[in-house]
């Protein structure tokens, strides 16, 4: 297995900096020309309602991504193809906490979140149903901490990240329903989200 750490700061990101001063008039987007490749049929935990989710998570917070994600690609030699083949890729980003619903955390604390996607050979390769982490985006997170590190992840992948009403997130052209934070509405937990909106003031 070969590990490679790269940052997703591309030429496009540099362009973003150049246009940052007039961002309000530019509809600039990092993901406009990227091909989306959703791959990997997984088995993962499912949380059929809010109670199951609350029971599982360490933290539930509203937070904002404060940086560009750091990417780790995993390759291994594949006998069938006779070469190293990508088999997994993750991106890790930092959020700053703005509100705490569950768990031991303070407003202003930062923590790291990992999602299973990355930009490989110009494609956005994702094993996750969640859209990428974009700097400045605000979400409601239901988070579990990895037992062997200090990194958190969204419980059940798309079961653990929800929209903050009235958030002004960056455009996300790769998704049909970007406001929900998933590529496909069938992966969004509407029932749980409605329960959350009923119970918590976010």
């Amino acid at each position: 297995m070969m590990k490679k750490i790269t940052a997703i700061i591309t030429v496009l990101a540099a362009c973003a900096l150049l246009t940052a001063c007039n961002k309000s008039t530019e509809n600039f987007n990092d993901f406009d020309d990227i091909k989306l490749v959703r791959t990997g049929f997984a088995n993962r935990r499912v949380f059929e309602n809010l109670a199951a989710l609350e029971d599982y998570v360490d933290l539930a917070v509203v937070g904002k991504f404060t940086g560009d994600p750091e990417q780790e690609e995993r390759y291994r030699y594949n006998e069938f193809f006779g070469k190293d083949v990508l088999y997994f890729v993750t991106s890790t980003n930092t959020i700053e906490i703005e509100k705490v619903l569950i768990g031991d955390a303070e407003i202003g604390d930062t923590l790291q979140i990992v999602q299973d996607y990355g930009i490989v050979d110009g494609d956005l390769v994702t094993f996750s149903d969640l859209t990428p982490m974009q700097k400045g985006d605000e979400w409601l997170f239901f988070l579990k901490k990895e037992s062997d590190s200090d990194i958190y992840f969204c419980a059940g992948d798309s079961d653990g990240r929800f929209p903050v009403p009235n958030a002004e997130n960056e455009p996300m052209p790769l998704s049909d329903c970007p406001d929900l934070g998933v590529y496909d509405e069938q992966n969004f937990m509407w029932n749980t989200y409605n329960e959350i909106l009923e119970k918590y003031d976010i």
Partner: peptide
């Protein structure tokens, strides 16, 4: 492989 606690397994 150690996939953390996010996935149980997957097929590519």
């Amino acid at each position: 492989d150690n996939l953390g606690e996010r996935l149980l397994g997957y097929t590519t």
